[in-house]
């Protein structure tokens, strides 16, 4: 065995992960689902010369499926990262080494993100089938990849935070999914309900559609991944929103900042002796 100068947690986690049969099965199942659906679509809608460049449905289905899989996999991979160490009773030993809590958290996040990214990258060639149908620009594909990246980062950080905050992996996984549900579904519903309430409160019928353009509703829509995903795909799921900003850019900034805060908070929670800033003295 050759010793590595890389971060020891990353080396250990990757070693453990890729020696596990579960990893191979996860990857196989992911590709089966991601490949099976476009294949089924191909069978139902054979490519016709006349419809080339016209059919965007496959792209929308693939992207939505990809996003759903990320929502399912990313929190699960990190929700046991720290609580798992605690349950195995290896966390205390780890905390008596020279690895700082921040290094431990970043390393755990990195290895989990690496695996989720592997899943996404491994399934990217499936988009070549989408390309057969056309109607997708390379820019759209790149924005979609960035959108997935931000989601992986955020959901991974969320799972990691829950894992540090809550002692048991099962509970931490449930809470991570619960919070993810809030961001993915509840923010969308809030946007819809608030918009409808504001419409009801607007007596002038001609101004009712202006409600959807209000800045607070735009911001709410801008943090909802489903609305932003469909904006990237050029589709609409909810009432048409006129964004005064680029939705994916706002979305990316918001969730990247939130991810960094969650990671820093996790590192703080992991510290065995938490020094409060007002009690700091040498």
């Amino acid at each position: 065995m050759k010793s590595s100068s890389l971060n020891p947690i990353i080396v250990k986690e990757l070693r453990e992960r890729f020696r596990s049969k579960k990893t191979v099965w996860t990857l196989a199942l992911f590709l089966l689902i991601m490949g099976g659906i476009p294949l089924g679509f191909l069978i139902v809608n054979p490519i016709k010369a006349g419809s080339l460049g016209q059919n965007k449905d496959l792209f929308v289905i693939s992207a939505a499926l990809h996003y759903a899989m990320i929502c399912f996999v990313a929190p699960a991979l990190t929700a046991g990262a720290v609580s798992g160490e605690r349950e195995r009773q290896t966390l205390n030993i780890l905390l008596t080494t020279q690895l700082s809590p921040r290094t431990i958290i970043w390393s755990k996040l990195f290895t989990s993100l690496a695996f989720t990214s592997l899943l996404v990258i491994a399934s990217m060639p499936l988009y070549s089938i989408v390309m057969l149908y056309g109607s997708v620009s390379p820019e759209q594909l790149l924005t979609l990849a960035l959108f997935f990246g931000v989601n992986i980062m955020f959901l991974g950080s969320l799972g990691l935070f829950c894992s540090t905050w809550i002692k048991r992996t099962a509970v931490s996984t449930i809470i991570a999914y619960g919070i993810a549900f809030f961001f993915v579904v509840v923010t969308g519903l809030l946007f819809l309900f608030l918009g409808e309430i504001l419409i009801q409160l607007t007596p002038d019928r001609s101004l009712q559609q202006e409600v959807w353009g209000r800045p607070e509703l735009q911001y709410l829509a801008g943090i909802n991944p489903v609305i932003v995903l469909f904006a990237i795909l050029g589709e609409t799921v909810l009432p048409t929103i006129r964004f005064d900003f680029t939705p994916w850019l706002f979305f990316s900034c918001f969730y990247l900042v939130l991810s960094i805060l969650l990671v820093l908070w996790s590192a703080y929670l992991l510290r065995p002796i938490r020094r409060k800033w007002w009690s700091w003295k040498k």
């Binding site: 100068s5 080396v11 453990e16 020696r19 160490e85």
Partner: peptide, 24 residues
């Protein structure tokens, strides 16, 4: 004694050597 799955005794010690920043 907390056990890491899928690590040999040497890899286990190597991990902690890395954690204490001992040169490879």
């Amino acid at each position: 004694f907390g056990v890491y799955d899928n690590l040999t005794a040497v890899e286990y010690l190597d991990f902690y050597a890395g954690a204490f920043k001992i040169a490879p």
